[in-house]
Design a protein around this nucleic acid. Structure first.
Ligand SMILES: [Mn+2]
Ligand SMILES: [Mn+2]
Ligand SMILES: [Mn+2]
Ligand SMILES: [Mn+2]
Lengths: 218, 218
DNA sequence: ATTATCTTTTAGGCATACCAAAATTAATAA
DNA sequence: TTATTAATTTTGGTATGCCTAAAAGATAAT
């Protein structure tokens, strides 16, 4: 199997299984990768043979230890490159994902570690996603979505789970950028919307938006 | 055809044809790319259909204008990355070629131009090879090999045509690095060897070595 | 428990990009 | 010029990685 193919499957399985706690279905993979389900079945059989995943027919797939390690290395490369493009080359946070999708496949530890070092070994990427270190360990800050929070209080925005340009532009428009401090004033029971203040201004955000903002309590 | 496949063919044709002056034979390509000649024939037919090359059966191949432009863009990316890895990330000049072979396929003009800008738009890469600008134009300094020079006088080392690690290490050992000033004191008719001084020390270099050192008269 | 629906797998195909062996064509030497 | 050699092309493979359509299996609803 081509290394780039393997990497894209492992990365996607990883992203869909949130820390390898639940199995990933073929359909999830097919839709994420824009492949036909039949292609996914085939690929999973091969990845199972290669011992990167445990694929149980008609049930689901999870990463083995070695598959998870590979996935985390890819995630590290992806996020280091995104951070580098934004912080060192002046790209916007909404234009780096596509480039990183290519750069993440260049496998050279020294290169990634030098880039990381250059930036002071950052722990979050420009979208707020945590960057694993060279050993594959993540920063252990417990991050939650603003929707999960559902309580009055102060939070700091650490990232987003929706990385689409339209969403990022929306956040930017309202000053809801990474690092911003916000305060939740009221939680509307009817529709889950939140009244928050951010940089002195009051905004109402929908449950849908809230569920895509990653933050930590402050 | 896969874009990376096309790019590797075009780049290799470009490198073998020295400025598109002579046609490239299938055999040259096969041996450079480590492919079977039959595979090369097939690929050239396709590249011809795509109008990247003019392939004349049983005679040879040369790049079209659009093929040459693509090749030069790849060469630019390759050499910008090599320069970046050496100048900004502290890699040795003998370890960057392999990495650049991968990075050169990431096609994003903004990325390459930002990297180039960051370094002050360098005109030579760490091996002394010229870097075309964003429009595909090369610096026009006439560079020759020390063997072609064959005359007493002063020169500056601008690069090498043999990029192997063993050759680069040899040069390094004798201080024959890029940018070094050397002076040719005698040319030995018998075997073409040269007696030169470099950083106050006298060295005899063989014709073989001389023919792989690229320099310009000073 | 039976049916309807949704998911997964199987089966059969296709394009890409390579290969080895044989046939052809071109170049070189006798 | 004719043989010999060398380069190229043709032919008939293989492995990858995707596809569609049909069959089988699992899940949910009545
Ligand atoms: Mn990303
Ligand atoms: Mn990211
Ligand atoms: Mn190189
Ligand atoms: Mn170079």
């Amino acid at each position: 199997m081509r290394s780039e193919t393997i990497e894209n499957y492992l990365k996607t399985i990883y992203n869909l299984s949130s820390d390898n706690t639940r199995v990933v279905t073929n359909q999830q993979l097919a839709s994420k990768l824009n492949f036909n389900p039949a292609s996914v079945t085939e690929a999973l059989r091969k990845l199972h043979e290669l011992k990167y995943v445990v694929y149980e027919k008609s049930y689901g797939t999870r990463l083995t230890a070695s598959g998870a390690r590979m996935a985390i290395d890819i995630v590290r490369r992806h996020r280091i490159w995104e951070t580098y493009l934004v912080k060192e080359l002046g790209f916007g946070w909404d234009e780096v994902h596509e480039i990183a999708e290519e750069l993440e496949h260049v496998k050279n530890d020294k290169l990634i570690n030098k880039l990381a070092e250059l930036m002071g070994n950052p722990v979050y990427d420009p979208h707020g996603d945590p960057i694993p270190d060279a050993k594959g360990k993540f920063q252990k800050d417990k991050l939650i979505t603003l929707f999960e929070a559902r309580a009055k209080g102060s939070y700091r925005i650490m990232g987003t789970s929706d990385h689409s340009v339209v969403f990022l532009k929306y956040l930017e428009k309202h000053g809801l950028i990474i690092g911003a401090s916000i305060h939740v004033k009221t939680v509307e029971e009817v529709d889950g919307s939140l009244l928050i203040t951010c940089q002195k201004k009051e905004i109402v955000i929908s449950q849908k938006v809230a569920s895509n903002i990653i933050c930590k309590e402050t």
